[in-house]
Design a protein around this nucleic acid. Sequence first.
DNA 1: CGGGCTCTTGACACCCATCAAAGTTTGTGG
DNA 2: CCACAAACTTTGATGGGTGTCAAGAGCCCG
Lengths: 248, 248
Amino acid sequence: MTRYPLAYSAPAAAIPLLLQRLQRIVRLTEDETALVLGLANRRRYDAGEDMAPDEASRSPELIASGWGCRQRVLSDGRRQIFCFTLPGDFVGLSPRPLFGGLSSSTAVTPIQTLDATPLRDILDNGDPRYAGLRAACKVLTMRKQALLMEQVIRLGRLTAYERTAHLLLELRARLSEVGLTHGDRFPLPLTQETMADHLGLSIVHVNRTLQQLRRERMIELKSGWVTLLQPELLVSLTDFRFPALPRA
Amino acid sequence: MTRYPLAYSAPAAAIPLLLQRLQRIVRLTEDETALVLGLANRRRYDAGEDMAPDEASRSPELIASGWGCRQRVLSDGRRQIFCFTLPGDFVGLSPRPLFGGLSSSTAVTPIQTLDATPLRDILDNGDPRYAGLRAACKVLTMRKQALLMEQVIRLGRLTAYERTAHLLLELRARLSEVGLTHGDRFPLPLTQETMADHLGLSIVHVNRTLQQLRRERMIELKSGWVTLLQPELLVSLTDFRFPALPRA
DNA sequence: CGGGCTCTTGACACCCATCAAAGTTTGTGG
DNA sequence: CCACAAACTTTGATGGGTGTCAAGAGCCCG
């Protein structure tokens, strides 16, 4: 088993960071803040473990630490990863039993989750005390869809080089929202195989592409961390447009 | 200007067909049926016309006839089509000003729309009289997201041949829901360039792929109509899984 | 110290893009 | 109704980006 950097294996600091992101979308009341801070631990997942044991009746979860992904495995073994799930993201919050079976969630690194049932209750009943929190959760859900559209852009119209850079830019932006970046440096706990299955490429070609990015001094890559050396250049090269969260 | 078959240029029959689809998701009350039947015409779009003149303040619309698409054009001219918008689909129903500017809607054929403002009102206020209709609209919105995931599968892990077949299967399934198919035959008012921009391929390669599908007696293609000759075979070849609407 | 993963490298093949041009259909105007 | 123009489709030739196969190197962990 690989050892993972502290930055994404320490759940302690996770909740305040999520709160900070929610606060930036909508000013939260004391009640709302208290509710988020009161979310209980739910369970841990090992790297590679499937995250939806009982699809239908499962409770929604909030990632406190670790990375996951949503994916589908085709009948012949080909795998496509739709999106990565980062700390502060929800899993199973929107009622997905409708189109279930079309995708599954898996832990990429060890994951610690919180029980997000209170948040789903807020979404279901229209309790006016939590209107702000409800709105913020809806925004996060819509943003997830916007990110899926970015994924379509990557796969449909970008080259391997552009795809890879585009993904790194997205990860930087998302991790930055929850305070998990250090400037242009952030953890990247993905094997090249995992990246390949997200980017629609082969392992070998991901390897060569990363090497090219390093050779051209676009990135630095070392033991699970990556540094973007010329992020602005990559932004314009890949026509990167990030669906940033709206400010309150 | 291309001439388009009656099947998608005659708005008259559109609303009952949409109703039928909604009824299959949720049993609608008399009030709800009346509201849908009472939707007023909004406007026509010419083929190629942009459908979001005033992004922020625009009212939601329901496609009564014609095909559209949601797309993004990259700064260097590359175009990616996210999804096609068929009769019975909504445009601008979910409040998208948040992440606006990241995609735009365009008419692929001439389009006639209805004003869907009453439906948005239902989504916004929680009027219990329209609970069923509200639920049905939400299901349609979630299905749109599921279809986007199918698009990721196409682009990420299918070959050109599989992609093309996969798209045709999806179109058949969606058109069938609103009664616009005749068995395995349905209108396909897309140029090969449009298909290419959806499938992430070049025009030339779409052409060759369609020819291969014809040569192998998988499809028949003539003047804007396509027939799937061996749909079940294509389903298994492409591992096609359609996010069918749940039955009431 | 030895066994797995993961990363790296090279050789080779193939899918698909690009370029160019001819053929066909569709729409328009005389 | 015919003739022309524009858009779309088709075809061939060629090149490049990416996949596949195979083997070695590095790293982590028991």
